[in-house]
Design a protein around this nucleic acid. Structure first.
Lengths: 341, 341
DNA sequence: TTGAAAGCGGTACCAG
DNA sequence: CTGGTACCGCTTTCAA
């Protein structure tokens, strides 16, 4: 077999040339057409031929070149995935979901991290466009108009963002918020702070909207503390204002911010949950590792990623598919009875 | 221009077909050969032709199809990246480094997460092989023989693993361990436990080796506690044995394990660092967020990723390049004076 | 300086 | 059931 390979390319170096379909055809004594069929449409090839071809293919370590195949079929077998920041433990969960589902469907995935830079998003997607069958955009920060333009150029599935006419996977924020507030109300809290995330974040807008609605119907007083970066440091920075806001509980944009609040409270000697209850969003693994462990509204991560891939791959006629996955409050140590209740 | 496109493909639907080099050639009134040249070897084309071609290309929104190009040039402009587990916050740091450097070099990156399954590694790499110019293997768990075989099939760069003859990026474990032990010795510790990681992990073997060497020369007594999974749960599980091991300090395979130790100690009422000092490896962001904050040996993450890409891309003749990046002890709250010292 | 044509590795159609 | 062949989009000789 080595002879075949080296003869073919003229390289005498090593056996390091990948076998092509021609090599297999020659070695198996059939035409290239038969090789393709034996591999992709076995029922069109007589059993013994098929077996022979497959055996030689295996022996030569042959794997069809996906790029070449894509050239003619128009399908690449690749997916793109865009995330704002891989450092936020929320996203690896989604990435793993996308990867898992993509691999099951025999697709490889390109990953791009935008470093929370909305301006970089569209460019990255366009660069990948030619090499993928579609791209999953995770919490994209770009303006809706730009998103629409992109959706016209390449199949897109949104995760944690909703845009009319574009397939998307989100979670039941309103219901999650209801669970969160009910929990706090049951513990006797009546005045609650909210530390917000990026204004360009759709998820933040949704949370604020839900929270306002729920507060009204639950009769709790809501104190909005403004926006911070969706990271630990954001929470640390917001903590001191929360402490003097006269609230007994605080809901953070996400777990990372909540962890920042927890950290600063500990440093300031504010006891959690005795003096202040803290509640996050996301349910990142980290939340269960700290002390006190973080009460949070769990958002689907792996499941969201998998669903997004399905949206992209399943040739649903209806391209405006909209999925809303359930959310679940996870009660842990960072929330407790309100002072004096 | 739309006419051209639709005429070409016969699709009357939308303008959603990507312009090909032929479209540009036709529109600019030149041959396809000239278009390629105008775009990739401008000096071979007369100025005005060049300009005309470029203008039409821009107008049509033309971008060469990288897959097709790769077919003939043999270079894809893509890189592969394999990580054992994206949930371990150590890896996103490396991924970001690889991505950053790859994008600077105008390369896109395929990411594959093996879920700590050594058996899956080789297969994933081979699947990507045809579509990439090389792959970065991050802490691969597969046996060395298999790694060697792979290296014969496709350019490879190793991160946190060393195999003779294969380019790799690692860190100065021995020096890091020396810093760690010196620190503990200075605090009065004389009997130190080590909670190990996966036996298939090269990094773990290196740490053990370094630790043994350093212990001997520092006159500390080393108590090896066996292997655990390199995660939070592993640390939690090992904690009780550490507590009864009669040591005043423990070094963990990595930060996640150290965090697990911290967690279980808190639950058991073992005070850190008063009763037990805990020291990790990696320096994941998480370590600074917990209380007490984790003392750790920082391993380069982004820098390691970037270096690996350089190794892959730079046409160094010497393909057995071996990089060893520095390590640095980060002292935080989880280590303190030994009991009674 | 430019164009024609030969592939790169596959797939799909058309005969046989 | 199998082989021949055109062609996917692009680059690269080879001539003109």
């Amino acid at each position: 077999m080595l002879d075949v390979l080296t003869a073919k390319t003229g390289r005498a170096k090593t056996g390091r040339v990948a076998a092509t379909i021609k090599d297999v055809a020659r070695a198996a004594g059939v035409s290239v057409a038969t090789v393709t069929r034996a591999l992709s449409t076995p029922e069109l090839v007589r059993l013994d031929t098929r077996e022979r071809v497959r055996a030689t293919a295996a022996a030569l370590g042959y794997h069809p070149n996906r790029a070449a195949r894509g050239l003619i079929t128009g399908r690449t077998g690749n997916l793109g995935l865009l995330v704002p920041d891989l450092s936020n433990p929320f996203f690896p969960g989604i990435v793993k979901g996308v990867q898992g589902r993509a691999h099951e469907a025999d697709h490889a995935v390109f990953l791009a991290d935008t470093d929370e830079d909305p301006a970089a998003e569209a460019g990255l997607v366009r660069k990948l466009a030619k090499q993928v069958d579609g791209v999953v955009l995770c919490s994209p920060r770009m303006p809706e108009a730009e998103l629409r333009a992109l959706a016209g150029e390449i199949p897109i599935a949104l995760v944690y963002r909703r845009v009319p006419g574009t397939p998307s996977v989100t979670a039941a924020f309103l219901d999650g918020m209801r669970q969160a507030v009910s929990h706090l109300v049951a513990l006797g809290h009546r005045r609650i702070a909210y530390v917000g995330g990026p204004r360009t974040s759709w998820a933040n807008r949704e949370r604020v909207r839900s929270l306002r609605a729920v507060s009204k119907t639950s009769g709790v007083e809501l104190v909005e503390m403004g926006s911070v970066i969706p990271q630990f440091e954001g929470g640390v920075a917001a903590a001191d204002q929360v402490i003097v806001a006269g609230v007994t509980a605080v809901i953070a944009y996400n777990d990372l911010v909540a962890l920042g609040l927890l950290h600063r409270c500990a440093a300031r000697g504010v006891r959690v949950p005795a003096d202040l209850s803290v509640l996050g969003f996301d349910d990142i693994p980290l939340g269960a590792m700290v002390h006190p462990a973080l009460t949070t509204v769990a958002l689907p991560q792996g499941a969201a990623g998998r669903a997004a891939v399905d949206l992209l791959l399943n040739e649903r006629q209806d391209r405006k598919e909209r999925l809303e996955l359930p959310t679940q409050l996870i009660v842990r140590g960072s929330t407790g009875p309100a002072e004096g209740s």
